[in-house]
């Protein structure tokens, strides 16, 4: 895809808006003062918005990356001959864990790890694992038996079969799992500010606690834009994968 065509994709627009707003939010004081004239401090100032956004992205992105690698790895292992004994346990764990509310998982990480970014990261990784595992298992199992047989018949090694046949065929489903996992991660990271992590949720929660709707609005708009950008990016990826 050429650059000028890429520029027409919504992901670029929304993402650009997100970056622009993040960089200029602290200069929008007059706007928020006009919107909420009764507030003394119309713009969140405990931390800069670029810092909040970076921290948020690092938390959610890092956790999603770990969850993706570990989740795909676990699911691949459980579908190999050596690891197939683990498949039932993994499936049970995934289906139980998906009934656990993300906030509860986040809260449970605090007694174990204390406050700050660490419990948020742990909760994000643990909670993000499950959609990836479930989707990868489903994807690998949906690979047509005929394709596997053909690969075996043409003399693929097990690794080559996995890499060239099974994973590419399972990719669309795995991608939906990664998308779910990442979007949940961004949402849960927002709440991570209740356990002391610095994220775009911080202005929202401080605003709710201090009855400052301007803070709430600033955090909300940015975090919503971030989530939508990532969602659109995944949609873009899925589209290219489908071609």
């Amino acid at each position: 895809m050429r650059p000028w065509r890429l520029a027409r994709r919504p992901v670029v627009w929304v993402g650009g808006l997100f970056v622009l707003l993040t960089l200029t939010m602290d200069r929008l004081g007059p706007l928020f003062h006009w919107l909420f004239p009764r507030l003394d401090r119309p713009v969140y100032s405990r931390a800069g918005f670029p810092e909040l956004a970076l921290s948020h992205a690092a938390l959610a992105g890092g956790a999603s990356l770990v969850a993706a690698v570990a989740g795909i790895g676990a699911a691949v292992f459980a579908t190999r001959p050596a690891g197939r004994g683990f498949a039932p346990a993994l499936e049970t764990a995934a289906s139980i864990a998906q009934t656990f509310p993300p906030v509860a998982v986040l809260a449970l990480a605090v007694p174990a790890l204390g406050y700050g970014a660490a419990p948020t990261l742990l909760a994000l990784v643990l909670y993000g694992l499950m959609p990836v595992i479930a989707a990868t298992l489903a994807g690998l199992r949906a690979v047509p038996a005929g394709a596997i047989e053909a690969a075996e018949g043409s003399g693929f090694s097990p690794l080559a079969r996995l890499w060239q046949v099974e994973l590419p065929l399972a990719a669309p489903l795995i991608l939906t799992g990664l998308r779910t996992s990442t979007i949940i991660g961004i949402g849960t990271a927002t709440i991570g500010s209740t356990v002391g992590a610095l994220t775009l949720g911080s202005p929202i929660l401080d605003g709710l606690a201090g009855e400052n709707p301007a803070f709430v609005l600033q955090g909300t708009v940015l975090v919503a834009l971030l989530a939508i950008t990532v969602d659109l990016a995944f949609a873009e990826l899925a589209r290219r994968l489908a071609v």
């Binding site: 709440i191 949720g201 929202i204 609005l217 975090v223 919503a224 939508i228």
Partner: peptide, 18 residues
């Protein structure tokens, strides 16, 4: 609706207050 689902939950809760 998909867009709504994408927005982090706490942000959606807070968005409605105003």
């Amino acid at each position: 609706l998909n867009l709504l689902q994408t927005i982090p939950s706490i942000a959606l809760f807070a968005l409605l207050i105003g």
